[in-house]
Amino acid sequence: MRAFTYERAESAEAAVKAAAETPNARFIAGGTNLLDLMKLEIETPAHLIDVGRLPLAQIEDTAAGGLRIGSMTTNSHLAADARVRSHYPVLTQAIVAGGSAQLRNKATTGGNLLQRTRCAYFYDTSKPCNKRSPGSGCGALEGLNRNSAIFGASHACIATHPSDMAVALAALGASIETLSPSGAARAFPIIELHRLPGETPDVETHLIPGELITAVVLPPPPKGGQVYRKVRDRASYAAGLASVAVAGGNIALGAVAHKPWRAADAEAVLASGGSPADAIAAELAGASGNGRNGFKIDLVRRLAPVAIDQANRGRP
């Protein structure tokens, strides 16, 4: 691990100020992804600003009938919250499908959103990767790309976003609240947080440098059933090959793109009375494989309609 300096932020305002004033600074909360990457020298911050103890770990009811989840809420606490379990079961199901209990006990809501891809070429510093080392090329394009993206990829990057939680949040139509280094707060839909790779896969979100996620806001629960289904190589503690979150008429797919993939084409078919199979077929019309990941198209074709049916039957 490269040497760095460390401070514990006393407030969110102090944290964003420190981030703006210190070159190559990073926020650290749970640290489960960042420290892993720092050990591999994929992440090499010069300064860490510990935001883990900021008073942003509450889950509050909103006036609109939803929930505001402080960004430092651990994954475990969020999944266990009684309101989430009864009104947003897709979110609990998605969270407990990710990582191990030890990781979920440390990982935070904000950090979960900002975790980085598990693409093997990103992790292997002896290989080219435009995300880790811009301009070096993409080893996955013609390499071992079994777990690469089938939606929204570019010739520069076919990595996927690894979060399960974010897929459920995308289906629920959540938004995020942030604090900018200038001190300005803003809010925007979570589906606008992550970018597609395009020519600059190293730029993963629309956050400005030093901007801190302070909360995730859930709207009132959608009408209709909810479910999260995930397919992976092991029964537990493994990244997804494909996943689907259903929340009423909203569908989001996971492990298939550089961001949680809101399946707008599928939703439109469902809204006009089409079958789940037709809906997912419409979405998959825009999918493409790169060789070894082609199976994901069939996987989604089989997985997602079953999940939609399951949600419609009202089963958890």
Binding site: G31, T32, D36, Q102, L103, N105, K106
Partner: peptide, 29 residues
């Protein structure tokens, strides 16, 4: 593994289990 994959480093922090390899000592003041 030193990467949070094996669990051999699991300890209890304030009664909650975590991977002690994926946390900095200074975060636990």
């Amino acid at each position: 593994c030193d990467h949070g994959q094996c669990g051999a480093c699991t300890v209890l922090v304030n009664g909650v289990r975590i991977n002690s390899c994926l946390s900095l000592a200074v975060m636990h003041d």
